[in-house]
Design a protein around this nucleic acid. Structure first.
Lengths: 175, 175
DNA sequence: ACGCGTTGGTTCATTCACTGAACTCTCAGT
DNA sequence: ACTGAGAGTTCAGTGAATGAACCAACGCGT
C-alpha cells in the first residue's frame, strides 16, 4: 500500500500495519508462506503474480522481518523464504479476513481448519471448541473443502488438495 | 487491490476478501466508519485521502454493501455513509491487524478498547476477560492511549481524544 | 564439450491507479 | 447578490503493476 508520508499523520496501528502488509499481493504472499510455500517458483505459479512484483514483495517482506531468506543448497545456490514469528503473528488477521470473505461473499467452504491434536474444526475466533484453548499455528491442519478445483494446474494447489499442517513446507515434488 | 481476473484463479476466501477491501485506503475507510465517521468531509480530513479516491472507495464500499448511503437532510441534500452489518463484520480483521501493528511495529498503545459494561480492557482476541464473552462492536469503548498528538488538526482526531463507543456517530461540531 | 532444463531472478515498454489541484453544483444565510 | 459549506467531478502528472523477454548459474545426459 505504501501510504508513505501518511503514516506519520495516521497515528493508528492499523494504518501502520497496512503500511507494511497493505500493498497489493503482500498478504497473499504471507498466506502462502504460512501454508508452507517457500520457493520463488511456487509463489509465482500459485499466485499468478508478475515476477517483478513477487521479487519486490519478497524483498520488502524480508526487510520487514516477516520472511527470512535462507540458503537451502549451495550448488547451485538456491534460497527459500521462510515465514518468521512476526509473519506467523499475522495469522489471526488472515484468518479473520478468511472468515469474513467466506461468510459475506462466498457460498461454500473452500478450506477447513482443524486442531491437529483432536481433529475438531476451529471456531471462527481460532480456538478449538473441544479443547477450549487457542491453537498454535503449527497445530492447525489445513483441509480441502467443497468447491475446490479437483485438478488445478499449479503444483502448490495440487499439494493443498491433501490435508497438511500449516508452516510445514509444501512438497511440490517436481524436481 | 482489485486483483481482477486473479480472483477466479485464487479459490481462496482471503483473496476474495482482499478483492473487495484490499485496495489502498479501503480498510482505513472502514475503520473510520466503525469509529463513527459518517460524512465525506470527515473522512477526507481525517484520512488525508485524495477526494477522487475517497469518492471511488465510498462508491465501491456502498456497492458491496459495506457502507450504506443515507440522506440525512433534504435541503440542501446531504448524504452520510453508515457502516452496515457486513462492514461491522470486518471488525475482527481490523482488530487483528491493529494488534499485529501494535505488537510488532510500535512502542506505545495509541488506543485502548474496553468493554463498556464493565470497563475491562479487551483481550487480544476481542473478548472481555472479566465477563468471559465476546463483546459486540457497539459495546466497545474506544479510549485514547499514550503517544497521541494532544492537539490534532482535524476535527475527527480531536473528537477521538475523548472516549467514545464504536459505531456511535462522531460529533465534529463544526457546522 | 555441448546443449538443455531448472531455479531465481532483472529489464523494459505499456497500462493502470493514485495524487493534488482546480473546478462544479446546490443550497442556506445575510 | 454575495459568501460559504458540503459533496462531489475533472484532469494533467506521477508512480506502481503488468507481462513478456532476457539473463545467469549450475547439474545433467550424451
Amino acid at each position: 500500500m505504501a501510504l508513505g508520508k501518511d503514516y506519520a499523520t495516521q497515528q493508528c496501528s492499523i494504518a501502520r500495519a497496512l503500511e507494511v502488509v497493505g500493498e497489493r499481493w503482500t498478504l497473499l504472499v504471507v498466506r502462502d508462506a504460512i501454508y508452507g510455500v517457500r520457493r520463488y517458483n511456487d509463489f509465482l505459479t500459485h499466485l499468478g503474480i508478475p515476477r517483478a512484483v513477487l521479487s519486490a514483495r519478497l524483498k520488502t517482506l524480508t526487510e520487514e522481518g516477516i520472511l527470512e531468506k535462507r540458503r537451502y543448497q549451495e550448488a547451485p545456490p538456491r534460497d527459500e523464504y521462510v515465514v518468521t514469528d512476526r509473519g506467523i503473528a499475522l495469522w489471526p488477521a488472515l484468518r479473520a479476513l478468511a472468515v469474513w470473505g467466506h461468510e459475506q461473499l462466498m457460498d461454500h467452504r473452500l478450506r477447513h481448519l482443524r486442531h491437529v491434536e483432536c481433529g475438531t474444526e476451529l471456531a471462527p475466533n481460532g480456538e478449538c471448541p473441544s479443547c477450549g484453548t487457542s491453537v498454535p499455528v503449527a497445530d492447525v491442519l489445513l483441509m480441502p473443502g467443497t468447491g475446490l478445483d479437483p485438478d488445478p494446474a499449479d503444483p502448490v494447489s495440487r499439494a493443498l488438495l491433501k490435508p497438511k499442517r500449516l508452516l510445514e513446507p509444501i512438497e511440490t515434488g517436481q524436481s
